[in-house]
Simulated assay, not measured.
Amino acid sequence: MTARKTTSRASRRTAARQTRPLPGLGELEAAIMDVVWRTDDAVRVRDVLDELEPLRKPAYTTVMTVMDNLYRKGWLSRELDGRAYSYQATRDRIQAATDALRELLADSGDPAAALLHFARSATTAESRALTRGLKERGRRR
């Protein structure tokens, strides 16, 4: 068994309900990635199955198959640990969201226009975040 964060099970479930699946992930894939992202260390299929919400209790083999699919898609890395694989996310949630945003922009047909449209319609908080990011980027150059 692997070590886990010391947050309560109830708070982990609340966090899981508040996040939306990223583009490119099915519902169960997103729930599994949420468990993996909330865990400090590598996880086994049994660890993930134990952490899924009570209303979502797929079979062990279903979780194993979905985790294998996530490995093949590049979302997870794995290492043989005894007779079972231990899995880890290949990127954190923020990087995955960034990659998904880039894909959405690329698929828009005119990424610059889509980005400008977003910037013009951004909320005050979103505008502040964009401004902060551009300032930080300017300092790194």
Rank of each mutant, 00 (worst) to 15 (best):
A59N: 13
D47Y: 00
L52F: 01
D41W: 03
V43F: 01
G24S: 10
G24P: 04
L22R: 07
W37V: 05
A15S: 12
A59M: 06
R17K: 09
L22M: 09
E51L: 11
L55I: 10
R13N: 14
L49R: 12
A42I: 00
Q18C: 09
V45D: 01
R17Q: 07
D41V: 10
I32P: 06
R38E: 06
E27R: 15
D50A: 15
D41P: 00
L55Y: 09
R46S: 12
R56P: 00
D50L: 12
E51H: 11
V35G: 07
D41E: 15
Y60C: 03
G24F: 06
V35N: 03
R20A: 13
L55G: 15
E29F: 04
V43C: 07
A30E: 01
I32N: 05
P21T: 07
D40L: 10
P23N: 05
D41N: 13
A42D: 10
V35E: 09
V48K: 03
M33P: 06
D34H: 10
R56A: 11
E27H: 11
A31G: 07
G24I: 14
G24D: 08
L22K: 03
A16H: 09
D47R: 05
V45A: 10
T39R: 13
R13C: 05
G26K: 06
P21W: 01
M33W: 00
L28V: 13
L22V: 10
D47N: 11
Y60I: 12
T39C: 12
D50F: 04
R56T: 15
W37L: 10
L25R: 13
T14Q: 12
R46C: 00
